[in-house]
Every structure is written in structure tokens, then in C-alpha cells.
């Protein structure tokens, strides 16, 4: 990935590229629609759903199956949990945590990954060797094991999860940016900027980086799905976002205990998670194929 050959565009091959365009458009449309819907639900949760934490009249309202109304006339599209809380409301408010933590973690990864990758690609010699060594080292670590270690040493919180996910997810981005920057650094327009007397930092930030960032979008989209999944995993183990604040992970965990009499409590957040991660992945796939027309043409052939 990200070698020098990745930057040269090749002419598209008529019909096959169009056919592939349609398919990739479908993936992109689906991915964007899913992500937009999830963001909308998260943003407008107060308007779309009731109170996610309130528990009134537990005995009468708990374990109601989906599409039922309780004796007070409140409708529960996804049923209620063992405390009589509305699963839809918890799902909608949980989207705020899951999407928020996921995207902030990806942002941290982006900052670290772009910085490390750009520095390693631009300054050859020992800084490059050291940074690439660090990247390979970080890639070889089992991420979840490291997350668990950190979660055991510090108090679990959303902030810690963002930081830890971000600091364990930058390596792919660093590798991509490194390849791009290396290839761009020898191009004539860069030599021109150097010849005009621009400083190293200015050349890197103003001339090289803007051209190197497109493949990073792909890595960010794929990373978002991954981060959402890992946040849910940590919260599922009780080491992430703490109840009663709902996150999709701790919703699945709370549904685990009532799997027999109320399977919908664990099923609903899981389905939401899968749909969002599929959306992010397909969007990433579609953008990747778009960015590399030669790849798209070959894949359609």
C-alpha cells in the first residue's frame, strides 16, 4: 500500500469503469446514508426518543417486547429492558457516545499518524528509521491487550477510551502518509518550492501534505468503523463508558444478562453497530476505488 506507484493516475477504460462506478456509487450512497442517519439520530436524540435513564413503574414496564405499549400508553418501538427503560431511547442516546468517541478517536489517530508519517517520509536518515521502527513496533502489539492494560491502570472514562483508541490506531495512517510523502518529495513542484527558499516545514505543510491526504480519508473511514467496534468492546467488558450513560457496548453488556427473557435488549444495539460499521467500511471501499482509477478499471475487468 501507498508505494510510489500509487500516485500515478491511469486512464479509465470506458464501459467497465462506468459499470464499476455504479457499483461503487451504490456502496458510497449506502455508506453515506447510514452514517448520516446515525449522526442525525445522535444529534436529535432528545426529539426522537424519550428519557434513556428514567425508570418509572419498573414492574409494569420491564421486559416489554418490541412494538408494544405499556399501561401508561407509552409506545416502545424496540421494547424495554429489565428496568423498564426504553431500548430505542437508550440506543439513540448511545449513538452520541459511540459515534462521538469513535470519531474523536479517529481524529487523534489522524493527528498522530499524519505527523509521524509525514516526518518519516520527509526527513530521511535516522528520524525516518526511528519513526518507521516505532510504527512497526506499534503494529505488532495486540491492540485490545494494550487497551485492557491501560484501562486497568487508569479509571475507565470516555476521555481515556478516546485517547487510548487514538494512540493505538495511527499506524496504518502513518504508513500511508509516509509512502505518499516520500513519493511527492522528489516531484518537481516540491523542488521548485525548495528552490524559492521555502523552509522545510513550509514545504512539508503547504506543498506536500495537501497532496498526500486523499488516501488518508479511506483509512479514516475504515478506522472509524474499527474504533466504534472497539469502544463498544471495551464498554462491553465494563472498561469503557460507564452505565447508566448508555453506549452501544454497555447496552449489549446489559442485554447479556437478559438474553433468555428479553433478547431484543442485546440484539438492537448489536444490529445498529453492524449497520454503522458496514456503512463506514463500504464508504471507505468506494472512496478507495475512486481514488485509484487503475485499480477500479482492473477490478471491473
Amino acid at each position: 500500500m501507498g508505494g510510489p506507484e500509487g500516485t500515478g493516475g491511469r486512464a479509465r477504460h470506458g464501459g467497465s469503469a462506468v459499470r464499476d462506478g455504479l457499483w461503487s456509487d451504490r456502496r458510497a450512497v449506502f455508506g453515506l446514508a447510514v452514517l448520516a442517519m446515525a449522526v442525525a439520530v445522535a444529534l436529535f436524540a432528545p426529539a426522537l426518543a424519550g428519557d434513556p435513564i428514567a425508570q418509572r413503574d419498573i414492574v409494569a414496564t420491564r421486559f416489554l417486547p418490541p412494538f408494544s405499549s405499556d399501561i401508561h400508553g407509552a409506545f416502545h418501538p424496540l421494547g424495554t429492558d429489565r428496568f423498564g427503560r426504553d431500548v430505542w431511547a437508550r440506543l439513540a442516546y448511545g449513538a452520541r457516545i459511540s459515534l462521538g468517541v469513535g470519531s474523536l478517536a479517529v481524529l487523534v489517530s489522524l493527528i498522530v499518524g499524519v505527523a509521524v508519517g509525514a516526518a518519516a517520509g520527509f526527513w530521511r536518515g535516522w528520524p525516518s528509521t526511528a519513526l518507521l521502527g516505532l510504527t512497526d513496533f506499534a503494529l505488532a502489539l495486540p491492540r485490545v491487550v494494550l487497551l485492557l492494560l491501560l484501562a486497568s491502570l487508569w479509571q475507565p472514562s470516555a476521555g481515556l477510551v478516546i485517547l487510548v483508541l487514538g494512540l493505538t490506531g495511527w499506524m496504518t495512517i502513518a504508513r500511508l502518509v509516509h509512502g505518499e510523502v516520500r513519493a511527492l518529495a522528489v516531484r518537481p513542484f516540491v523542488e521548485g518550492a525548495v528552490g524559492l527558499g521555502a523552509s522545510d516545514l513550509r514545504v512539508l505543510v503547504r506543498h506536500i501534505l495537501p497532496n498526500a491526504l486523499t488516501p488518508v480519508i479511506v483509512a479514516a473511514a475504515l478506522g472509524l468503523g474499527n474504533a466504534i467496534m472497539l469502544e463498544a468492546g471495551l464498554s462491553f467488558l465494563g472498561l469503557g463508558v460507564q452505565p447508566p450513560t448508555p453506549s452501544w457496548g454497555n447496552l449489549i453488556a446489559s442485554g447479556r444478562d437478559t438474553l433468555v427473557n428479553a433478547p431484543w435488549v442485546a440484539a438492537a444495539p448489536g444490529v445498529a453497530l453492524v449497520v454503522v460499521v458496514v456503512g463506514a467500511t463500504l464508504l471507505g471501499d468506494a472512496v478507495r476505488d475512486r481514488l485509484d482509477p487503475s485499480l477500479a478499471a482492473r477490478r471491473a475487468a
Binding site: I252, R256, L259, A266, L273, V274, V277, V278, T281
Partner: peptide
């Protein structure tokens, strides 16, 4: 395959247990 790729293992495990 993209759905399998997106499935969190712990959730799939729970559903299979169910």
C-alpha cells in the same frame, strides 16, 4: 463478507449462545 467483517465477535457470540 462485509457484514461478517463488521460483526463484533462478542455480539455474534452472544447471539449464537442465544
Amino acid at each position: 463478507t462485509v457484514t461478517l467483517f463488521a460483526l463484533p465477535g462478542y455480539w455474534l457470540g452472544l447471539m449464537l449462545v442465544m
